[in-house]
Design a protein around this nucleic acid. Structure first.
Lengths: 257, 257
DNA sequence: TAGTGGTCTAGACCACCTC
DNA sequence: AGGTGGTCTAGACCACTAC
């Protein structure tokens, strides 16, 4: 073992004490000056150590209040059932999911015509920069920013389904609306990635340092044609996704062996 | 617009220049002292700005070398096909996938008997702390640490399949071996989450600051029984997962509309 | 050897929160 | 008012990389 720099010793000691339960989730750490005395280090050095814990997502800090141990409450989203073709739902599946979990959903919504970003154009199989309809949701659970969702529809589809450009919600859901026009989604291609948020994302989702985002890109197909590309950006500390594959009908959830 | 602190101005300016292509991926940023002169700020302030970019995953730094703009090369893993029940593969699916991509796979491997961690016990439906077999892989692509994979099997299954405890690879694959004993995996339950790496994970995967991990937990079922729990920890900057749902057989991948 | 980033200090002043 | 974290400085010394 090589000698660790002092700020790492500070971080390691505090991390151990947090893992150990000395500082449970939601509790406050000692102040910088107390830690400075305890570790015989300058305030700056202690700050460097605390900053490590912040970027690890273990604690958060706020001016005038101190450092708090993060609590993690996770919302799980079933991506196989979500909008599943065999489980048709009425209305907005996000709102029903959240309400079923006993939480209060809220969302802001807007529609705009916009050139398709390269990433989206590629997946919709249209020319980069060609016009697309963007339907954008900013979603909250109990007034905490939870995720953003941006769905792009290609121009040719708007000709068939002009209501896609309507600024308000589509009552029966866009999937159902398109199906009523004979454009039925028969399959999805999902991509999942993670990275640190851009400054814009950090602002929209009120993410502090040390929290990554979970990116979920879903392309919906009707036969050979891609008809939509939905990019959902989740706060990584609050969300988890799951998929069911194959036959899980017999699965028992409770009694241990 | 409120006035930003100086170290944020430094970060914002450099971020804009990076996005703008002034510093392409793989290139080096000016040295701290040069930036210090350019922004009329102390070296410490410039360092605070650069540290922001590091924790955002945009640049990395190394002693004696300077700050380098990260390049992102992503490996995509198809989780619906991977070990898919209808697409049986011979041998190790990881190695074949990587080789098919024209890269060189390498892995270290070990087996141990160990108490099942709470997280795993819950998913295997066994008592927390009861014995399980852990088969652990540390995987590299072209000698870059890529992921770790820990598969736990419950004790009762080892009685049926004693070769699970063999320290070496199982030639035909564990899935196939278990099937030959009448324990066939008929379905999976996948969970996907993200967070910042623990210090241990950061060491194993050689992750610097600003790179989250992607956690993939797969529980395999044979009828009502959970027979394995596999936790894969990916470097978030190098990996992406995808799932295919429904009927994508007609999907066209190339010609724009 | 020269230049780079890594660590550390001591002290100053500001902004925010609680009482 | 007093305590908390947030910002910033000037300077010192160390460790690593390149030449």
């Amino acid at each position: 073992m090589s000698k660790q720099p002092k700020y790492r010793q500070v971080a390691d000691a505090l991390r151990r004490e947090i893992d150990n339960g000395d500082y449970p989730p939601g509790s406050r750490l000692p102040s910088e000056s107390e830690l400075s005395a305890r570790f015989s280090a300058s305030r700056n050095t202690v700050r460097a150590g605390l900053n490590l814990l912040v970027t690890e997502g273990l604690v958060s800090s706020s001016q005038g209040l101190g450092y708090e141990v993060r609590k993690h409450e996770v919302f799980e989203l079933n991506a196989s059932r979500f909008e599943n073709l065999s489980f048709p739902q009425s209305g907005d599946s996000y709102s029903t999911d959240v309400t079923n979990a006993g939480r209060r959903p809220r969302q802001t919504f807007r529609v705009e015509m916009t050139p398709a970003p390269g990433y989206v154009a590629e997946r919709l199989n249209v020319e980069p920069g060609s016009t697309s309809v963007l339907r954008f949701c900013h979603r909250f659970v109990d007034d905490v920013p939870w995720s953003t969702q941006a769905t792009h529809y290609p121009e040719w589809l708007v000709a068939k389904g002009p209501r896609l450009t309507e600024p308000g919600d589509i009552e029966e859901g866009t999937t159902r609306y398109l199906a009523s026009l004979g454009v039925e989604q028969v399959g999805y291609f999902d991509e999942i990635a993670t990275r640190m948020p851009t400054p814009d994302e950090a602002r929209l989702l009120e993410i502090g340092a040390g929290v990554p985002v979970l990116l979920w890109t879903r392309v919906g197909y009707s036969g050979e044609q891609a008809i939509r590309c939905t990019v959902t950006t989740f706060r990584g500390d609050l969300n988890r996704m799951n998929y069911e594959i194959g036959d899980l009908s017999a699965r028992s959830e409770n009694e241990p062996q």
